[in-house]
């Protein structure tokens, strides 16, 4: 089954839409899906032109395609557990929150909290991701716990905050404090970043660009060769953050 959701023109296009019901499994069994536009509850048809092509008997046979002005739509793919969502443009905050399986492909940029606390599945963002990509909710002690997050462009500040499991691959630059409070999993940064892995207690972070303002509380631990994007790099190894228990591994290109 292929579901195409094309946004309708809106009188107030900057008002955010909260659409956690847009996940593949809901299109198998629901026909009264609700979304919120600001503080007003709407039907899916109020805000989207909906086209459904072909049948499906299970959620993993459902592909949802979002087109149009999708940059203010939040929570698409929240708690998704099968199937595929393709977003042809930008997407709003919290895309792929808590997802456990399936795939989300974003052709444009993603707003903050992309893949927040995801447990499994795969998110591919072909543009840039904003702050808190693959991070945790406020006050939560664990961020992303499983799955794969791949961003072809840059990511903002606090990327992979509280990362506890899974792989986060940022091909471009990261902002400030990527991997802060990290406790597990793997974070790969292809470009530059600042102050990586503050207060980390576990996991592995690799920085293949320049790391600025590296914190003084990482202990040098030799060097080794690593492969990334078809090339071989010499990496300096650090253990830290010794301001905390210091059992994480930080690798920075020599």
């Amino acid at each position: 089954m292929r579901v195409i959701l094309k946004t309708r023109p809106r009188e107030k296009p900057r008002i955010p839409i909260e659409a956690e019901e847009i996940i593949p499994q809901n299109f198998l069994r629901k026909n009264d899906m609700k979304v919120f536009e600001g503080n007003k509850e709407r039907t899916l048809e109020d805000l989207f032109f909906v086209t459904i092509e072909g049948p499906a008997v299970s959620p993993d046979q459902v592909e949802v395609v979002l087109t149009g002005n999708t940059g203010m739509i939040k929570r698409v793919g929240e708690y998704m557990n099968a199937g595929r969502i393709i977003i042809e443009g930008d997407i709003g905050m919290h895309c792929g929150n808590f997802m456990s399986a399936g795939e989300i492909i974003i052709r444009g940029n993603a707003d903050a909290w992309l893949g927040r606390e995801m447990r499994g599945g795969r998110i591919l963002c072909e543009g840039n991701a904003s702050h808190y990509c693959a991070a945790g909710y406020r006050g939560e002690k664990r961020g992303m716990r499983g799955g794969i997050m791949e961003v072809k462009g840059n990511a903002g500040d606090f990327t992979a905050e509280y990362l506890s499991g899974g792989d986060v691959i940022i091909h471009g630059n990261c902002g400030d404090l990527p991997g802060v409070e990290m406790r597990g999993g793997t974070l790969v940064i292809g470009g530059e970043c600042a102050r990586p892995c503050g207060n980390m207690t576990g996991g592995t972070c690799m920085v293949f660009g320049k790391a600025q303002r590296v914190l003084p509380t990482f202990r040098s631990n030799g060097s080794q060769d690593m492969d990334y994007a078809g090339k071989r790099y010499r990496m300096n190894l650090f253990r830290g953050d010794v301001a905390n228990r210091g059992k994480g591994t930080l690798m920075i290109r020599a």
């Binding site: 102050r195 503050g198 003084p216 509380t217 301001a243 905390n244």
Partner: peptide, 26 residues
Amino acid sequence: PGGDYAILSALRAIVRGKRDIIPPNV
């Protein structure tokens, strides 16, 4: 400017008895 986090981390490490790791200037 913007160096507070590193200073606080360094002080935490010193108080934890990890003085040897602190570079000459933070």
